[in-house]
Design a protein around this nucleic acid. Structure first.
Length: 636
RNA sequence: GCACCUGUAGCUCAAUGGAUAGAGCUUUUGACUACGGAUCAAAAGGUUGGGGGUUCGACUCCCUCCAGGUGCGCCA
């Protein structure tokens, strides 16, 4: 359909250009709400009427007259609703075209896209907020791959932060463990989750503790042991835990970019030269910021400190340098080492500060998506501003903050977890998650709960399933439920997390989609090989009764929109539209499935058509579910 | 104070400025001698926070008021 729409656009502009002043941008197609209004619709006449101060209905009629019979794929053109021009496709021809292009994928593009997501501080376990980030980032990357882009997934690791000092202090001085004891802790991320919350309460309550923490931070920066060694160990182990957690959800990375390497390789120095030359970064005139180098943030008219008066670089400065590197705009580069290999042999590399052999090429993107929650908007906008000011308008446009709202918890959910609520929080619609307060659902715990529920549901429906058979199925269902839940909301909707909603396997949920596909596959499995072999040509739609024909056509038409839908989702930052699209396709199929049996059908032409629909549906929806990261179990 | 976001059915959420504002959950009722009931069909549920404006057309854009949230540090 995407191809066809482009073709129509060209043809219609060509036919009408002599009589009307139309621009290609004015010519937008949409699917009419009801099929009686045709298969494709345009409100071109309204747009033109506004420009030329004419009556829309008159314009539409005269344009439709000129187009009548000119478009080869179009059966009829009608005007309705006071100026909509509605096109009716030649259905048999369209169906044949869809059938002939079954399993065709989008041609590869030359552009390279970097998607940065996850980027969790390596000092404690991941929670539901991080899951939204990683699920969105992963689906974003899958969309780009589907559309043919070269994609590199990066995960930024802040391995130098004061956050690690918190837990280092907690382990070494509060719990009085030595390095050997620390290395014996299993599931370190989950262990530190508790400790992190505990020590943060101590720091808030007692200035002596806070001072001791600063001492630890200093020692880490000066590479003094055992603090430094503990910091390195924790950062790496917790990172591995995060990678394993996300791998449970089929979320993978290509490169781990470490902040410590950005610093060690002095990326900022190269960036600073440029920033100073262009007078983007200047000495602050503000007496309170005497001796600081700042960038003027135009949107809010404030000065953002980049280099402190003591000469150290802020987070903002480091982030500017890192993002310049992503576009290949710095005269320096990382070194790399192999860090981790997934069971399917996909490698993760990590940046390094010293030369290593056999470095694959990273960076140099044409487009950068940073999946970071909305609370960092000002910083991300500032980076886009700086790119432009440094004379890189193209990268500035292609620097995209993929912003989303936070995950919070309902007050009920907080209580359910046995955590305390302050009186003023009781009546709030949601409570912000907080690692410092230990107030969040840990990612692994949620996944475990989902798997347990899947197992239970699976067992109640399938007796005599061995553990070896059930395990991958339960996992697939849990992953589908979680990923669908994380993507189904609009990006600027705060998710007020609630176990009942997240553990829903019915209706608007991931398992619903899987169930549809499982049943569809079951039909194919039971279809005789001879029947499938006949499937060389779908034939004409004529044998179908009216009711079936309309429903059949509705599904075919919607299936054909896959590529358009993915492009739309990416262009508008609405991955949730893909979840809605998948759900609506499955609803339509389930409806059809109940009314029109395939295997029992005696009329071969009809049976043939129904099988065609099933094979087309399978092809498109499998691709769509793959983008969403939802796999299809053998049975459910 | 400045910047950004949100307000839609009892609840959780959808809806490219477009045709009669849609789903799921909940409630009530119905459908298996099963192409798999994690399904399907039906009922009920709405002054799209209030008020103005722009437009052939507004949940959507503009103004204003009300209610909520987030960001704005020589933290990262």
């Amino acid at each position: 359909m995407r191809f066809l729409q482009e073709k129509f656009k060209k043809q219609i502009c060509e036919i009408l250009k002599n009589d009307y002043e139309i621009a290609a941008a004015d010519l937008m197609f949409s699917l009419p709400a009801e099929r009686k209004f045709g298969d494709l619709s345009t409100y071109l006449a309204f747009v033109l009427a506004k420009k030329t101060k004419n009556k829309p209905a008159l314009l539409a009629n005269s344009m439709a007259g000129k187009l009548q019979g000119q478009l080869q794929e179009i059966e009829a053109i009608q005007v309705a609703g006071g100026g909509f021009i509605n096109f009716y496709l030649r259905r048999d021809q369209f169906l044949l075209y869809q059938w002939q292009n079954l399993a065709r994928s989008m041609p590869p593009k030359t552009e390279k896209v970097i998607v940065e997501h996850t980027s969790i501080n390596p000092n404690k376990a991941a929670h539901i907020g991080h899951l939204r980030n990683s699920c969105l980032g992963d689906i974003l990357a899958r969309c780009c791959r589907f559309l043919g882009y070269k994609v590199e997934v990066q995960n930024y690791i802040d391995d130098t932060g004061i956050q690690i000092a918190d837990v280092v202090w907690g382990l070494l001085y509060f719990q009085k463990k030595d390095i050997t004891a620390i290395k014996k802790i299993t599931n370190l991320a989950a262990y530190l989750w508790e400790l992190y919350a505990e020590v943060n309460q101590l720091f808030a309550a007692n200035e002596d503790y806070a001072a001791a923490r600063r001492e630890v931070h200093k020692k880490i920066e000066d590479k003094i042991n055992p603090e430094y060694e503990a910091c390195l160990y924790i950062a790496e182990q917790v990172l591995l835990d995060h990678i394993r957690t996300m791998a449970r959800l089929d979320i993978k990375y290509d490169l781990l970019a470490r902040e410590s390497d950005v610093i060690a390789l002095d990326f900022f120095k190269a960036a600073a030269a440029e920033l100073t030359d262009r007078q983007v970064m200047t000495r602050s005139q503000d007496p309170d910021k005497e001796g600081c180098l700042v960038i003027h943030y135009e949107r809010e008219k404030i000065e953002k400190i980049i280099v402190r008066s003591n000469g150290t670089i802020t987070y903002v400065g480091k982030d500017i340098a890192y993002n310049l590197w992503k576009f290949g705009l710095l005269p320096c580069d990382f070194y790399y080492r192999l860090f981790f290999t997934y069971p399917d042999s996909h490698p993760i590399h990590m940046t390094a500060a010293e030369p290593k052999p056999q470095a694959p090429p990273f960076g140099r993107a044409d487009k950068v998506y940073n999946v970071i929650d909305v609370r960092q908007s000002y910083l991300q906008n500032l980076i886009a501003q700086v790119l432009d000011q440094l004379g890189h308008p193209e990268p500035s446009r292609n620097f995209i903050h993929f912003s989303y709202e936070m995950v919070a918890m309902t007050p009920d959910c907080v209580r359910e977890m046995g955590l305390a609520l302050a009186p003023e929080e009781e009546n709030k619609s949601y409570i912000e998650v907080s690692g410092r307060k230990g107030r969040a659902v840990k990612a692994d715990d949620l996944i475990d709960q989902l798997i347990a529920k899947s197992e239970h549901e699976l067992e109640s429906r399938n007796s005599g399933l061995s553990a070896a058979e059930a395990e991958p199925i339960s996992r697939a269902i849990a992953v589908a439920a979680l990923r669908y839940f994380m993507v189904k909301f609009n990006l600027n909707t705060v998710i007020a997390f609630d176990f009942k909603e997240a553990l829903n396997f019915e209706g608007d949920s991931g398992p619903y989609l899987q169930y549809t596909m499982v049943r569809l596959n079951s039909i194919l499995k039971k279809t005789a090989a001879a029947d499938l072999a006949v499937e060389k040509n779908p034939g004409l739609l004529t044998p179908l009764e009216v009711a079936e024909k309309e429903l059949y056509w509705e599904i075919i038409l919607n299936l054909s929109l896959l590529e358009t839908q993915v492009e739309y989702a990416l262009a508008n930052h609405e991955l949730s539209s893909l979840a809605a699209y998948a759900y609506s396709l499955c609803q339509k199929f389930n409806h059809y499935y109940h009314l029109f049996p395939v295997l029992a059908e005696k009329n071969l032409a009809i049976k043939n058509l129904r099988l065609t629909l099933i094979l087309l549906f399978k092809d498109k929806v499998e691709k769509l579910l793959h983008i969403l990261g939802i796999s299809i179990p053998k049975r459910m």
